[in-house]
Design a protein around this nucleic acid. Structure first.
Lengths: 129, 129
DNA sequence: ACAACTATATGTATATATCACATAGATGAG
DNA sequence: CTCATCTATGTGATATATACATATAGTTGT
């Protein structure tokens, strides 16, 4: 349930192609949809290929605290609910602005990746012909 | 000519959203198209948003040597041509296999990024309505 | 001889991600 | 009632990746 390892040729690992800090726009989006606490966010991050629940749960708390120190989110202890105390996070105006900036960045990224893919397809087409 | 800095709100830098080791599939593709030496590859990398010529030219040589040690490319000193001696790189069968693996990885990445973008658009639609 | 361009390379610092571990309240089984 | 398990939040150390700075050297034109 908690493995995503992949290998290329000769034991050389094929990088997962992760995007730098990609967890940040994901967290900002989820918090733009509705306020939430860390443990809850972990489940929702699976939709974006993160397995934070199994692999390094601490990462998410570090990110949330860092983002709070940058003014992108704000938190408060949530008195409601059962179980251990939980810290509820909400997005700020600055957080929303950064999310928008992220979207532009990611749209450009897609264009570049698509350029690479289509050039690869052309090359293999010629090579096989 | 050599600046790409961008900022979000409040001086918080908006990450460029770079993909981990993305230079690797780019180099593999360029070498799949035709053998080349490092300095030449720098120019062609601009097409994939790298500014290796201006920013850290050393990076490319480190990558090429590492990839050679992994058997993804092979090199030889190129006697032809003017100017300083240059090392010509060619892709290997293992390199082509890894390039294919990279393509699958990147195609999955695109799907995830698109998921994020469309969810963002839905959220802002609702928020503005 | 000196500046500019081609060409390759290394040393170090910073940023980011991963691995490992620590703490603690709540809940249900035996 | 105590022990395992789940929820919930966090820190320390390490590994990896990228960025910044610098070194070397042949070649060409003035």
């Amino acid at each position: 349930m908690c493995s995503t390892k992949r290998e290329g040729m000769r034991g050389i690992p094929c990088p997962k192609g992760k995007i730098e800090r990609f967890i940040e726009p994901c967290l900002l989006l989820l918090l733009a949809e509705k306020p939430a606490h860390g443990y809850e966010l972990m489940d929702n991050l699976e939709q974006f290929d993160f397995d934070t629940r199994c692999q390094d749960p601490g990462q998410i708390y570090r990110y949330l605290r860092r983002m709070e120190s940058e003014g992108l989110v704000i938190s408060a202890w949530d008195p409601g609910g059962t179980g251990p105390a939980r810290r509820s996070y909400s997005i700020t105006e600055d957080g929303l602005s950064l999310l928008t900036a992220w979207m532009e960045t990611l749209e450009k990224r897609i264009i570049i990746i698509n350029k690479l893919i289509s050039r690869y397809q052309e090359t293999t087409k010629k090579g096989d012909a």
